[in-house]
Amino acid sequence: MNPKKPLDPFFWLTVVCGSVVVAFILLPLIQMMAQPSLQDLKEAIQDPAVRRSIWLSIYTSGLAAFISFTIGTPFAYLLARRDFPGKKFVESIIDLPIMIPHPIVGIAILGLAGKNHWLGHLMHQVGIYVMGTVTGIVTVLTFVALPFYVNTVKAGFEAIPVRLEHVSRSLGASPAKTFLRVTFPLASRSMLVGIIMCCARAISEFGAVVIVAYHPMIAPVLIYERFTAYGLKYSQPVAVWLILVCLVLFLLLRIVTGQRGSKTAAGKKPS
């Protein structure tokens, strides 16, 4: 027989707080998702400007994630494996983009890339323009999203015992080969999480982008423009589409890489 346990007030407190948090996050989103009619959604997706902006958002965020992956992975490895003077300082620099208000990021990058700054002058001379270009958008997105990638992957590398790398070296593999054959595959899951975090962060960025590039419009800027030019009614359907597309993309990413992960676990036939 199971005697009824007395209800623990603390347990109920945690449940109540949990429900509040969930409701707090879901209510506004559900409200927004439920607002536009199917007709509104259809009209929105038939609008080439909307499709263009959503595609641009995905494309630039993906590029930002790819750049973070290429330059962030070796850097995260360095941070995870080496101790050097000033490491704490470097680590807090990585976190800066998370703390800086977003418009300031945009202003700072614009200021640097302008013709009146020597670097911007140089960039203009070789034909790199930041204001109002995809280059500019990707620069800003990488700036704000890179820390999410580096921090996630750094933790992933730290979780891999350094002894595995030692053994690999002792078996004849160079540091680069060791990284490719041992560390990289073992960290691939955390890299995937890092990429998803990085993409998610990039796709949600507005404040920094709108300062660097109003045109071409990424989806959040278009949503804002729609709101200011036409009002709530015409910005909501675009927002709904952006959320839906992102959900599907992230789901796909998880499924695709999840399958690959289970394949390795199943093992190959001995040769």
Binding site: I107, K115, Y214, H215
Partner: peptide, 17 residues
Amino acid sequence: KNVRPKSVELVSLLETG
């Protein structure tokens, strides 16, 4: 791309070159 939401924004674009 040279069209910005607010005219005041253009001032900083002028100033930064």
